Simulated scan of single mutants.
Amino acid sequence: MADLSVDFANTVYLRRGRTQDAIGDPEGLADWLRDRRLVTGGDDASHTDVLRLRDAVRRLFAALAEGRSPDTNDVAELNVAAAQAPTWPELRVDGDQTLLLHHTHATGRRALLADVARDAMRVIEAATTHPLRRCAAPACVVLYHPERASQRWCSSACGNRARVARHHATRRGAPAPPT
């Protein structure tokens, strides 16, 4: 699976030029969680808490992708969410197998939000070696990790749409859309 926090941030996307929110209502959130086999029960964190963290993660990742400094309020939101479910490691050795397990007393959505926040921190920390970019296609807002340095689009479909838009613009004599 892709980074949990990047997937979480990308729950806002464009479809036919209109902004969509996959988790904008409680039913959408339940579907998103179920589709990813994540916690679906527990109402220890409100839907508003979930959206507030998602929006903070999106803004932090956008700042990262655009080379801007992150907003201190968004950093604080991430820190608060991560602290809601303290974890501790446990090392288990069974013969020649070694397992590192992580435990928490938190359950439900609080634990999920803490996992998302910690994953976002990891993505931000690793950005120098594993950058995060915003898709350069005109009608896309997806954040992604490029597979190669020259990659400009999140998918081949976005690349094709951008090239087609540029082709149509040049045939009409209009300036090509930015890509």
Rank of each mutant, 00 (worst) to 15 (best):
M1N: 13
A2Q: 13
V6K: 01
V6R: 00
N10H: 03
V12A: 07
V12T: 13
L14Q: 00
R15N: 13
R16D: 07
G17E: 04
T19C: 07
T19L: 14
Q20G: 14
Q20H: 07
D21Y: 02
P26Q: 11
G28A: 09
L29K: 01
L29Y: 06
L29H: 03
L33T: 08
R34D: 08
D35R: 04
R37F: 13
L38F: 05
L38H: 07
T40L: 11
D43H: 11
H47C: 02
H47G: 04
D55R: 15
L60C: 11
F61S: 01
A63I: 04
P70E: 09
D71M: 12
V75Q: 15
V75M: 12
A76N: 15
E77T: 07
N79G: 13
Q84P: 05
Q84A: 11
A85R: 00
W88R: 12
P89C: 07
P89E: 10
V93L: 12
D94P: 03
D96V: 10
Q97E: 11
T98Y: 11
L99N: 09
L100D: 15
L100H: 09
L101S: 09
H105D: 08
G108L: 08
R110D: 02
A111K: 03
A114N: 03
A114V: 08
D115L: 12
A117G: 06
A117I: 02
R118S: 06
A120Y: 06
M121D: 14
M121P: 09
R122P: 14
R122G: 09
E125A: 02
E125K: 01
A127I: 15
T129W: 11
H130K: 09
P131A: 11
P131T: 05
P131E: 00
L132Q: 03
A136C: 07
A137H: 14
A139N: 04
C140Y: 13
C140G: 05
C140M: 08
C140R: 00
V142Q: 01
Y144M: 02
H145L: 08
S150Y: 03
C158T: 03
G159K: 02
N160S: 04
R161E: 12
R163P: 02
R163D: 05
A165T: 06
H167E: 06
H168Q: 13
H168W: 15
R172G: 11
A176P: 14
P177G: 10
P178K: 08
P178Q: 06
